[in-house]
């Protein structure tokens, strides 16, 4: 075991400290950009919340809960689009359970229910799907947490993840 450690130490011997020190300014600027993008995503989350409420309170007809044309799309943390438009929410607020297929596993990943940090139990987590035809976004949240989004698409009747999380 020590030998492996020594080999790894040997491998990084050539990795010297960067000339002039670490790029603190660039890293801080990148961090600020990420925070700004996240705030933009929160704005999208507010729109999603309103749409969820509409979906829950409106009559049962799916057409009745369609968002008006031009509803702001959800912009991802990396500048990509999470969903083109929020149309309807057929699955509002379902509980996240371990080992329950793609939606809940993906929601658990989004909320980091397993892995570090593991402070959030499964039973307080919720997920829903905002769909526009075959495109959409998986939305996951817990009480008091920001909404997290994952772009998904329906292929051959099955929902698939098609991109990274918008609020990693």
């Amino acid at each position: 075991m020590t030998e492996v450690r020594e080999l790894l130490d040997r491998a990084v011997e050539e990795i010297a400290d960067p000339v002039g020190g670490p790029p603190v300014g660039a890293i801080v600027a990148a961090g600020r950009r990420r925070v700004r993008h996240r705030l933009a995503a929160y704005s999208g989350a507010a729109a999603a919340t309103v749409a969820v409420l509409v979906g829950v309170l409106a009559p049962l007809s799916p057409e009745a809960v369609r968002a008006p044309a031009g509803t702001p799309a959800l912009r991802g943390g990396d500048g990509g689009w999470c969903a083109v438009r929020l149309d309807r929410f057929p699955l509002p607020g379902r509980a996240v359970r371990a080992g329950d297929g793609l939606p809940t596993n993906a929601a658990a990943d989004l909320l980091r229910l397993h892995g570090w940090p593991r402070a959030v139990p499964y039973d307080v987590a919720r997920w829903t799907l905002a769909a526009d035809g075959d495109d959409g976004a998986l939305i996951a949240w817990t009480d008091g947490s920001p909404y997290r989004y994952l772009p998904v698409a329906r292929r051959d009747g099955t929902w698939e993840i098609v991109g990274g999380p918008c609020t990693p």
């Binding site: 990084v12 990795i15 960067p18 603190v24 961090g31």
Partner: peptide, 18 residues
């Protein structure tokens, strides 16, 4: 945060290299 980056950057860089 800047102090943290200056203190830890080199170690993190070696870790990332591995």
């Amino acid at each position: 945060f800047g102090d943290f980056v200056r203190a830890r950057y080199a170690g993190l860089l070696r870790y990332a290299y591995l």
